[in-house]
Computed example of a mutant assay.
Amino acid sequence: MMIRLLNEFAQEQLAPWIKDEEVSDAVFRTMATIPMEWIGHTEREDLPFDVEEFFRRLREGGVQNG
């Protein structure tokens, strides 16, 4: 679900790891390593994880699809 939201909020940044609408395995592997905040029942204006840290890790270790 977080990858889907990320694709909506940071589509251009995520684009190098998407080909033919298929998200690279590197995105899933990287997302699995990112700490997330408990959302609970509160409303948020941002995603419950550090988006910049996610992309930093993805660039360092993720193989691009495109």
Score class of each variant (00 low, 15 high):
M2F: 11
M2Y: 12
M2A: 15
M2Q: 12
I3Q: 13
I3C: 13
I3V: 15
R4W: 14
L5W: 07
N7T: 02
N7D: 09
E8G: 04
E8H: 08
F9K: 10
F9R: 04
F9M: 11
F9E: 13
F9S: 11
Q11E: 11
Q11I: 02
E12A: 14
E12L: 08
Q13K: 12
Q13I: 02
L14M: 12
L14E: 04
A15V: 03
A15D: 07
P16Y: 08
W17G: 03
I18M: 03
I18H: 07
I18Q: 10
I18E: 09
I18L: 08
K19M: 00
D20A: 14
E21D: 14
E21H: 11
E21S: 09
E22F: 06
E22M: 06
E22T: 06
V23S: 06
S24W: 03
S24L: 02
S24P: 01
D25H: 03
D25E: 12
A26S: 15
V27W: 14
V27K: 10
V27N: 02
R29H: 14
R29G: 11
T30L: 06
T30K: 10
T30W: 13
A32F: 00
A32V: 00
A32H: 12
I34T: 11
I34S: 09
P35H: 02
P35W: 06
M36C: 12
M36H: 00
W38D: 15
I39Q: 11
I39A: 05
I39E: 05
T42V: 04
T42F: 04
E43H: 01
R44Y: 11
R44S: 04
R44F: 15
R44Q: 10
R44P: 00
R44I: 03
E45M: 06
E45V: 09
E45G: 15
D46F: 02
D46R: 08
L47Y: 07
P48K: 00
P48F: 13
P48M: 03
F49L: 15
F49K: 06
F49R: 05
F49Y: 15
F49D: 07
D50W: 01
D50A: 05
D50I: 00
D50G: 13
E52D: 15
E52H: 03
E53T: 01
E53Q: 10
E53K: 07
F54S: 07
F54D: 04
F54V: 09
F55T: 14
F55H: 05
R56C: 09
R57P: 05
R57C: 11
L58N: 05
L58E: 13
L58V: 04
L58Q: 02
E60D: 09
E60S: 15
E60H: 07
E60Y: 02
G61T: 01
G61C: 01
G61R: 14
G61V: 00
G62L: 06
G62T: 08
V63E: 10
V63I: 13
Q64T: 10
N65M: 10
G66A: 05
G66R: 15
